[in-house]
Write a protein that binds this DNA or RNA. Structure first.
Lengths: 106, 106
DNA sequence: TAAATATACCTTGACAGGCGAGGTATATAA
DNA sequence: TTATATACCTCGCCTGTCAAGGTATATTTA
């Protein structure tokens, strides 16, 4: 943990979209993947994660559907839309630019 | 402009502290320097700038004093404190870490 | 078998930083 | 005299994060 949220703020949606480009997934799995990718240095708080899903779906960047689990807890799967893929590309580009600017400034 | 504020959020204070390490300065000048450094790609909004000054002074990271201009508008100068320098070093380190994490995730 | 843990979802309300909009004042250029 | 540049400031809204709380199923442990 420890990485302050303000440094990640604004990347949450991009991170989620990035996960969904690889494959359809659900909240719990996405968060586990994030933790693994960062060697447990970062995780999304649940409230943050689920409110991001709402925004992304609202914006037409993702679609959701219930999984057909016959056992265990139900899962709401998300898939990325073409619009979402475009947003991801744009966000990634913005990040490259922002990174360069911030490096210049600090 | 254009760089969304959420990507910069959390860097405002570090950027200001970074400017003040070079030399004492005042709001207007700091903002001009930021614009120059980024080829006019970025600027702090005034409300953002001045509220950041308040926080930084409150935290003991900077001190302020009025300039002795005999002409033109008055200037409130800021200088960075040892505590502010330490905060700057820490923030910069956090940035390096965050950058690496975000690059892994998106 | 009871309790704890892991999986999996969700909402509410508070908080903090960014910023639009508005304001003040001095000096210079058109 | 009007506009622009310099230089400061505040108020109140907006948005994303997250602590705290809740629900339900399955497995592991005591």
């Amino acid at each position: 943990m420890s990485i302050t949220s303000d440094l990640i703020r604004g990347h949450t949606e991009t991170i989620i979209l990035g996960q969904l480009i690889a494959k359809d997934s659900y909240g719990y799995e996405i968060n586990k993947a994030i933790q693994e990718k960062t060697d447990n240095q970062y995780e999304l708080k649940e409230a943050t994660l689920y409110s991001a899903f709402r925004r992304l779906e609202q914006a037409g960047f993702i679609l959701s559907y219930w999984g057909d689990e016959t056992t265990g807890a139900r899962r709401r799967y998300y898939s990325i839309t073409p619009l979402g893929k475009e947003a991801y590309r744009q966000n990634k580009q913005d990040w490259e630019r922002a990174k360069e600017l911030i490096d210049r400034l600090i």
